[in-house]
């Protein structure tokens, strides 16, 4: 993994794109481990934690996929459009997943769900900033 980040980028897109699979894979891994640790203590809290995290990870992954479909000044219009499409999809997916959780999953620990959602959102921002900085240093 370390070698892949430090190696020379293959295309212009590789030089700007953070390692999205690593970032979202790590987030999912942390979620599953945290949920697994919580499961023997409190079953409801465990699946609430997993769901709260997934509500953040799934729309973010969709948004990232949309954003990096195009790259370069020649495709600036397509890049902006894919940003709008990605953001709309993310908004609708978040709305739907929250709605699904609250309407259909009972019992649910709302506090744990929101805490997991906030934690994963924070983790996403920190990891993106960290990997982007690391990638920039490696490419210089």
């Amino acid at each position: 993994m370390k070698k892949a980040i430090r190696s020379k980028p293959k295309s212009a897109l590789d030089s700007i794109r953070p390692p999205l699979m690593t970032i979202y894979g790590l987030q999912l891994g942390v979620l599953v481990v945290a949920s697994g640790i919580t499961f023997p203590i409190d079953r409801v809290a465990a699946y609430s934690l997993l769901m709260g995290g997934l509500i953040s990870v799934v729309p973010n992954a969709y948004f990232a996929r949309q954003v990096f479909r195009f790259s370069g000044a020649a495709y600036a219009r397509e890049v902006a459009r894919s940003f709008y499409v990605g953001e709309s999809g993310k908004f609708i997916a978040t709305l739907g997943l929250f709605g699904f959780s609250f309407a259909l999953v009972k019992p649910l620990n709302v506090f744990v769900l929101f805490s997991a959602y906030l934690m994963v959102m924070l983790m996403n921002a920190v990891m993106l900033a960290y990997f982007s900085r690391r990638q920039r240093k490696a490419s210089n």
Binding site: A12, P18, I55, S71, T94, F98, N124, L128
Partner: peptide, 27 residues
């Protein structure tokens, strides 16, 4: 342009954090 795209992605993640929490509370 590629660098701006990367930076925009970072900022976009921060931009919609608070509205998304609002959406969660609304649901």
């Amino acid at each position: 342009a590629p660098m701006l795209q990367g930076k925009m992605f970072l900022i976009a993640g921060l931009l919609d954090a608070v509205p998304m929490i609002g959406v969660g509370i609304a649901m």
